[in-house]
């Protein structure tokens, strides 16, 4: 009886129990996120503002988001297809943000033409 119950709920529970989200993983991830935030502060206080420092901050943000999405939001343990359809558009968003920031001054050129 217990065995049949288990197999009925197998698909629902499989991704929760089988793939190593346990308390240890959670606390290790918390440690990593805190350490990365402290690295942020180290760069903030020890480096002058520059484009390379901004890129370091963005890179650290992306690493942090890998841990939040991968471990906390469980994406690392989901079916690859799900990760694909959700993360691919996220990649497009990042590309758009980068493109708009890189060529954002185009607005000022257009404004200058209009005026």
């Amino acid at each position: 009886m217990e065995h049949t119950d288990h197999s009925a709920e197998h698909t629902a529970e499989h991704h929760e129990e089988g793939h190593g989200i346990n308390k240890k993983t959670i606390w290790v991830t918390f440690g990593i996120l805190s350490a990365l935030t402290l690295v942020d502060f180290a760069f903030f206080f020890n480096m002058d503002a520059s484009m390379s420092r901004n890129l370091i901050f963005v890179a650290l943000g992306i690493i942090k988001s890998y841990y939040i999405v991968g471990i906390f939001m469980h994406m690392k343990y989901e079916v690859k297809r799900l990760a694909g359809i959700i993360l691919l558009p996220f990649g497009f968003i990042l590309g758009l943000v980068a493109a708009l920031l890189y060529e954002g001054d185009r607005w000022s050129v257009i404004k200058w033409f209009v005026e």
């Binding site: 968003i93 758009l96 943000v97 708009l100 920031l101 954002g104 001054d105 607005w107």
Partner: peptide, 14 residues
Amino acid sequence: FSSLLVTYGCNRYL
């Protein structure tokens, strides 16, 4: 949210 951050970036850049 990314549209808001892009707006922030562009305004700051400009």
